[in-house]
Simulated assay, not measured.
Amino acid sequence: MIRNVAGAVLALAGATAAVLSPFRAWYDGRHGRDYALDELFTGITEAKADLWWSLLLPFAFAALLTLVGVVLRSRLLVGLAGLVVLGFTVFWMVRVGQYEGSLTVDGGGAGLGDGVANALGGGILLLLGALVMSGRRGRKARKGPEEPRAYAAPPGGPGTGPGTSGPGPREDPVADPYGAPAGDPRESAAPGSYDPYGSEPTRTFEVPDRDRERDPGQDGPGPR
Rank of each mutant, 00 (worst) to 15 (best):
R136F: 12
R136N: 15
R136E: 14
R136L: 14
R136D: 13
R136V: 14
R137E: 14
R137P: 05
R137Y: 12
R137M: 15
R139V: 13
R139S: 08
R139A: 13
K140R: 15
K140A: 15
K140C: 04
K140N: 14
K140L: 13
A141M: 09
A141Y: 03
A141P: 00
R142W: 14
R142Y: 14
K143C: 01
K143G: 10
G144S: 03
G144V: 05
G144N: 04
E146C: 00
E146R: 08
E146W: 05
E147I: 00
P148V: 00
P148R: 02
R149E: 03
R149G: 01
A150N: 02
A150D: 02
A150W: 02
A150T: 05
Y151S: 02
Y151F: 12
A152M: 02
A153S: 08
A153P: 07
A153D: 06
P154C: 04
P155H: 03
P155L: 03
G156Q: 11
G156D: 12
G156M: 09
G156C: 12
G156P: 06
G156V: 08
G156Y: 12
G157V: 01
G157A: 06
G157T: 05
G157F: 03
P158E: 15
P158C: 06
P158N: 12
G159D: 14
G159Q: 11
G159R: 10
T160R: 00
T160A: 00
T160N: 03
G161R: 15
G161A: 15
P162C: 05
P162A: 10
P162R: 07
G163K: 09
G163F: 10
G163E: 13
T164E: 15
T164I: 08
S165I: 12
S165Y: 11
S165V: 15
S165E: 14
G166C: 09
G166L: 13
G166T: 14
G166Q: 12
G166S: 15
G166W: 10
P167D: 14
G168C: 01
G168K: 03
P169Q: 09
P169M: 05
P169R: 09
P169D: 08
R170I: 08
R170H: 08
E171G: 07
E171W: 02
E171A: 10
E171L: 07
D172C: 02
D172I: 02
D172W: 08
D172A: 14
P173N: 00
P173E: 04
P173I: 00
V174S: 03
V174C: 01
V174L: 05
A175V: 10
A175F: 07
A175G: 13
A175W: 03
D176G: 06
P177I: 02
Y178F: 14
Y178L: 15
G179T: 01
G179M: 04
G179R: 05
G179H: 03
A180F: 04
A180R: 10
P181S: 06
P181F: 01
A182T: 01
A182Q: 02
A182H: 03
A182D: 04
G183D: 13
G183K: 07
G183A: 12
D184R: 05
D184N: 15
P185H: 12
P185M: 09
P185V: 06
E187L: 11
S188H: 13
S188E: 15
A189Q: 13
A189C: 07
A189D: 12
